[in-house]
Write a protein that binds this DNA or RNA. Structure first.
Length: 315
DNA sequence: AAAATGTGCAACCGCGGATCG
DNA sequence: GCGATCCGCGGTTGCACATTT
């Protein structure tokens, strides 16, 4: 393409912002909203490119930004979401209210990543580096089917699929309401900021497309090398997801719903444990171990990260 | 006390997707 | 349909400050 960066324009300032510049930007956005970032600097009397203004606003000046140290729960949320989403900082940031993607990214790179490495956990895969060979574990029948890798990857896939599913539904709901009212803008914020940015946009999701996109229910089958995906055709994903969504929306916010999704025993418990009701009835205890193994595995990750006794509400 | 090294974080850069004309 | 433009994201850099030698 060869499009030159907007900051290449002669005379545009780069580098740290001065308090005067901050004041100008703040005053302009408070009065007019940011509108087009491209044209904002000129209107606001700033010798900066629009990109620089947008960055300064989103990462620093926005009034709804919480600064300072991350608390334990935020740390755990970041680690968990990173395990699921990878380096999708903006998606992670949507579940940490008042934190910016840049701040989360910096915190991950400077603190959390190092801590995981120190504890012998691969910060990319979130797996312990010295994985015990299956053969030496003496695991029960069903537990032996799965390596930790497969368990974790499968949970990750399912949760990601569920997140995508829910996002689409939320987009759909948003789009339906949008047809009767304009998108809500306040100081340049849009409803979109609440949503994972990697999902499709509302108008792109037709009902049939959405139905098609309902992901396979992921089940573990007998493979030591990975997982096999199986459809569960009878399951009414649309209605159940809708129900889940309505339920989570009644809480304190989307992030709580999502945390519940990840940790509240729905997604992970179900995928890890198979069906708990079913396993409860089995006499071998193998599936109970199966559930416990996974729970312990996840516990161990967070205990590694924070060696103090866990008082996390998440587990 | 000074130099070297490490750390934290704001800001920049380049890319890709979306949108517009 | 296509190129130009805009926007947002993730990776990276650069600098100020802290800590160590």
């Amino acid at each position: 393409m060869g499009r030159s960066p907007c900051c290449d324009k002669l005379g545009l300032k780069k580098g740290p912002w001065t308090p005067e510049e901050d004041q100008k930007l703040l005053a302009y956005i408070e009065e007019h909203g940011h509108g087009s970032w491209r044209s904002l600097p000129e209107k606001a009397g700033l010798h900066r490119c629009g990109k620089s203004c947008r960055l300064r606003w989103t990462n620093y000046l926005r009034p709804d930004i919480k600064r300072g140290k991350f608390n334990l729960q935020e740390e755990q949320t970041i680690i968990q979401l990173h395990a699921l989403l990878g380096n999708r900082w903006s998606a992670i940031a949507t579940h940490l209210p008042k934190r910016t993607d840049n701040e989360i990214k910096n915190y991950w790179n400077t603190h959390l990543k190092k801590r995981l490495v120190k504890m012998g956990i691969d910060p990319v895969t979130h797996k312990p580096k010295n994985e015990t060979p299956l053969s030496s574990l003496g695991l029960s029948k069903n537990a032996a089917i799965l390596s930790h890798t497969a368990q974790w990857e499968s949970a990750r896939l399912e949760a990601e699929a569920r997140l995508a599913r829910e996002s689409k539904l939320l987009h759909l709901q948003h789009y339906q309401t949008k047809t009767s009212s304009q998108p809500h803008h306040h100081h340049g914020f849009t409803h979109k900021s609440l949503l994972p940015n990697w999902t499709t946009k509302p108008h792109e999701v037709s009902f049939s497309e959405m139905k098609e996109s309902i992901p396979a229910k992921i089940e573990f089958v007998g493979s030591s090398t990975g997982v096999t995906l199986m459809k569960e055709p009878e399951h009414d994903w649309i209605n159940s997801t809708m129900h889940e969504f309505e339920t989570t929306q009644m809480g304190e916010g989307i992030e709580e719903g999502f945390t519940g999704l990840l940790l509240g025993g729905d997604s992970i418990d179900r995928s890890f444990s198979g069906d708990k009701n079913e396993t409860a009835g089995e006499s071998s205890g193998g599936d109970c171990n199966y559930y416990e193994d996974n729970k312990n595995y996840l516990d161990s990750i967070f205990n590694f990260v924070d060696p103090s006794p866990s008082d996390s509400p998440m587990f």
